[in-house]
Design a protein around this nucleic acid. Sequence first.
DNA 1: CAAGCTATGTCAGAATGCTGACATGAGTCA
DNA 2: TGACTCATGTCAGCATTCTGACATAGCTTG
Lengths: 152, 152
Amino acid sequence: MSQEGVGVDLETSLGYLLKEASSALRVAMEEVLRPLGMSVTHYSCLELLAQRPGLSNSELARGAFVTRQTMNVLLQTLERDGYVTRPAEAPVGKALPARLTPRGRRSLEKASAAVRSVEAGMLAGLTGTEQSEAFRILRSMIHSLRGADEGA
Amino acid sequence: MSQEGVGVDLETSLGYLLKEASSALRVAMEEVLRPLGMSVTHYSCLELLAQRPGLSNSELARGAFVTRQTMNVLLQTLERDGYVTRPAEAPVGKALPARLTPRGRRSLEKASAAVRSVEAGMLAGLTGTEQSEAFRILRSMIHSLRGADEGA
DNA sequence: CAAGCTATGTCAGAATGCTGACATGAGTCA
DNA sequence: TGACTCATGTCAGCATTCTGACATAGCTTG
């Protein structure tokens, strides 16, 4: 029963809508980053390092929502191409603090501007109040999703 | 200037928060789907077919936010394993309408329940009003992101 | 009717990300 | 001190997804 014209609760699912929004954001970011020869993860890594110099590979991975193995591969490429530097030896423990080179900083500038304009566009139709609401609501969702199994 | 403890507007970026929420949702979904031997895209495809029987490969791809090539690979696997069926010849045009088999429907049942519980958990801390707000806001974001270059 | 445009299905190769595994450095605790 | 636990960096192999390309079906337009 219920075949064709049914309610189709994909249309009312906040999970689906969240995925849709995230997908749209990713597509829009890829679109502006492609001309700069940069992927979203690539950009995320540089932006993280710009705002928090000295992050380790594992910390960058968590910040960019990828595994540390994935970030490691990316970091090696970025290091080889002269966008970031890491000391040969860890000052403490095993964690190697990464930093942007001048070249990395330069490369990030255009990308950062492009991404900010994408984000600004995304928020164009929203009032400041709505943006605050969105912030609060998304935070709550994240908290609920993570707390479910970490707390148990 | 401004090195360590700076504002770090990743903390205030709605784009970053959106990515974080989406990542948390994906992780939570993978977690409950893994025991069922199902990936998120796998599940998405079955759920789409359950709610809208007869969708074509390209339509499924758009609904699951992947390319039609990716969905084609998945569909071939699902067809081989007896979860979906497609006619040998297209009734019209080239589009092959796909449908769930009884086995596919059975397999989807547990997965659907699991995913719904994840979504319910995600919304646990939110009032009905907040959920409506979230819905409206996400819709606006999607509209703004897509309209930017499709309208130009 | 013919040409052009768009959408579709599909194959092939490349890029990207993940899981598994191992070794190392640091903190904890008996 | 020695064993245990945890986090880290890294290598290797695999899975997933993407881009590029091609042929075909249907519509549109002159």
